[in-house]
Design a protein around this nucleic acid. Structure first.
Lengths: 240, 240
DNA sequence: ACTTTAAGATACGGCACCGTTGCTTAGAAA
DNA sequence: TTTCTAAGCAACGGTGCCGTATCTTAAAGT
């Protein structure tokens, strides 16, 4: 207990007074250092309680997602995530070795696993519902922006793209209009020959393009227009 | 053959021996420094000739585009561009203040300004031609990958997105199927009521989605399928 | 109550990039 | 040729992140 230490902040004082073998000279260095002060990322203050296990991991997942929406995948750093989560870098490195590992895990957990459940005999209604499911995904904070950023990153990093498919998309289903199209094709509501890679993709393609251009998902009315003006005609069921 | 190898130091030697007012001590420091050795970015060797004006700017434009294809917009740095262009940071700061400024200028210059020129009376052929124009854009190195990376960056940076539209897309035309659709709508080949934001966008949307998913543009055959299976039906001209 | 485990705080050397400065020198203009 | 302009080189102090190490301490397990 070296006496005479400035009382500083309570928590810090505890560390300042720790005794090391070569206490004297080392402490001299330490007293010279100033408080680091304001950084870029919001610093979550050290809390009274200390989180462990799931609670901590959840907080970190949340932090990595928010970091990504604000800075993008490419600018993710361990320090940033730690700062945002209000934890120590050490706790991150204990479980993961890169920020992207954390992101993948967070995405896997946050990605919704609902599938569209076509029913009745309402092709149009089921298509709209399927696209609205996709819509909900892109609209929901922070998942929507994060997914956009991931798509962006994936566009010039094949390994990242692969990982995204393997660790997020595929394990989580994520077939939207495809489910509906196959359902009706099997039951004669749609000509199976019309269910092609092109027609399967066109609904989501329109949603993605719209969102990339305007930086926000289309309105529900626009989603219906996609179905009426493109999807149904492509299925040979032009409403006009 | 690798640039930056020790014996390439001839040019540097000239600077080592330069005489400064306080020559002695300053040079002492310098002699202590080692050659920087291999960096991340390919270092273009200092050439015999010294480029100026357009030639230099062109080289820098080229460098920024290649940097972007490899690292993405988010990881652009002045040092990286300078290294790649084989020039000095000083020369960059003389003209631009951020790597993105350079990128915008390079894109503006590199973006093709052709417009589809619909002719004859061949709606299908003109649509395919228009999409193939777009296809050529995405396929051509380094423009395609760069545009993808820009789309990615734009997805979480509204100012960047705005700038892209203002400084690249809009001044360079870049209407593809839209031009064709309006042409035929004016001449009765297509019902004007069918030319909507949705139908105008769907061709490009499919191209973009395909490229984002697979990291390469679709084949010409696939482009034709887009026209046959989606675009024409949406225009009320289902080939079946 | 005591022990074990995991979270947290702090520091460290290293590195890449920042934006700037002082200077040399090649190329173009006079 | 000489003069002027712009390109190039090297260095600087500063910052942010890297990955690791050391030590303290709260929380969970016994």
């Amino acid at each position: 207990m070296t006496p005479g230490t400035p009382e500083a902040t309570d928590t810090r004082a505890a560390h300042e007074t720790r005794e090391t073998p070569e206490a004297t000279d080392v402490r001299a260095t330490r007293e010279g250092t100033e408080a680091p002060e304001a950084r870029e990322t919001p610093r979550t203050p050290s809390r009274a309680t200390r989180r462990r296990g799931r609670a901590l991991v959840d907080a970190i997942h949340d932090a990595v997602l928010r970091e990504t929406t604000e800075n993008g995948v490419a600018r993710l750093t361990m320090e940033g995530v730690a700062r945002r989560a209000g934890t120590a870098k050490t706790s991150l490195y204990r479980r993961w070795s890169t920020p992207e590992d954390i992101l993948m895990e967070a995405l896997h957990g946050a990605y919704p696993q609902e599938e569209p459940s076509p029913g009745a005999d309402d092709l149009r209604g089921d298509l709209v519902a399927a696209l609205m499911l996709f819509h909900g995904l892109m609209e929901q904070e922070p998942l929507g922006p994060v997914m956009l950023s991931c798509v962006a990153e994936a566009s010039y990093r094949p390994e990242f793209n692969e990982r995204l498919w393997r660790e997020v998309y595929e394990p989580r289903g994520g077939r939207f209009t495809a489910t509906v199209l196959r359902y009706y094709a099997d039951r004669g509501g749609v000509d199976p020959a019309r269910v092609t890679p092109v027609t399967i993709d066109v609904g989501e393609a329109m949603m993605v393009k719209y969102t990339l251009d305007r930086l926000e998902p289309p309105s529900p009315a626009y989603v219906e227009r996609i179905v009426d003006e493109v999807l149904l005609p492509a299925l040979g069921r032009d409403p006009r």
